[in-house]
Amino acid sequence: MQSTAKVNLECPVCGVTQFRHRFKKKNRAFWQCQSCDMELQYPLPTADELRDYYDNSYSEGMYNEFASAQTMKRMTAGRRLLEIRRHLPIGGQWLDVGCADGMFIDVANANGVNVEGVELSQVAVDLARNSGLKVHCGTIDSLPEDRMFDTITAFDVLEHVLDPV
């Protein structure tokens, strides 16, 4: 049964505070805004909980299987690169946010694009660095403020960000 409830939360899209409980997954409650239908998890995990979750997922969990799907990931990265480069000048500094184990970076670098990445999971960062890729551990906010990039990509990232606004 879906119940309407008032949670101590404001919708990041429309600002309304009325939510309907949707479901529970792995002891986490998911809610839907009564105004714009945006769905979110509440309460959100802390940054440390999120980092631990991703590290565990890369070393033992679901991302371990994802990381091993090299052929599919390489094809997806190549297609993304092709689509994006049609709209951008060649050259410049490129950052891939949430780069996981760096497959997109690897494909882009092999095609003459200078890409580096940032990733929350130290396990994924280590995998990328072991492949010779330039990847920083942290979030985009943890990079030096004076770092400038001509292009920033963030594939499959927004739904994982604690504060999307």
Rank of each mutant, 00 (worst) to 15 (best):
M72G: 11
H21P: 05
R20C: 07
R74Q: 09
A108F: 00
L95R: 03
L143H: 01
D96Q: 03
C11E: 09
N64S: 12
D52P: 07
L40N: 04
N111P: 07
A29P: 06
W94V: 11
D106P: 00
R85Q: 06
N8K: 10
A69P: 02
N64A: 12
N130W: 04
V107Y: 02
K26I: 13
V125T: 07
M38N: 11
A29T: 02
Y58F: 12
A108S: 03
E60M: 13
R80C: 01
V125M: 02
D141G: 08
N111R: 05
P45Q: 05
L95A: 06
A108W: 00
Q32Y: 09
D37E: 12
T17E: 14
D141E: 15
Q93L: 05
N8T: 10
A100R: 08
E49R: 03
C99R: 06
N56Y: 15
Q122T: 14
A124P: 04
N130Y: 08
Y54M: 03
E65A: 14
V115H: 00
V107T: 02
N109R: 14
L44C: 11
S121F: 00
C99H: 04
A5R: 14
V115M: 09
C14Y: 05
H87S: 09
R79L: 10
E10W: 07
S57I: 06
L50K: 12
D106I: 01
Q70W: 11
C11T: 04
S142T: 15
Y53S: 07
A5W: 12
G15W: 05
S121C: 00
V125L: 03
T71Y: 13
E65K: 15
E83Q: 15
L40E: 07
S57K: 05
Q34R: 12
V97K: 10
N130F: 07
G98S: 02
G15C: 07
Q34V: 10
S131I: 08
S142P: 03
K26T: 12
V115K: 01
R74T: 12
S57Y: 04
L82H: 15
R86P: 00
R22Y: 13
H21L: 15
R28V: 15
F104E: 02
K134D: 15
V16W: 13
I140W: 07
V7E: 06
S59Y: 02
E65S: 13
K134Y: 07
G138M: 02
Q18G: 08
R85W: 03
M103L: 11
D37T: 14
I84Q: 03
V123Q: 09
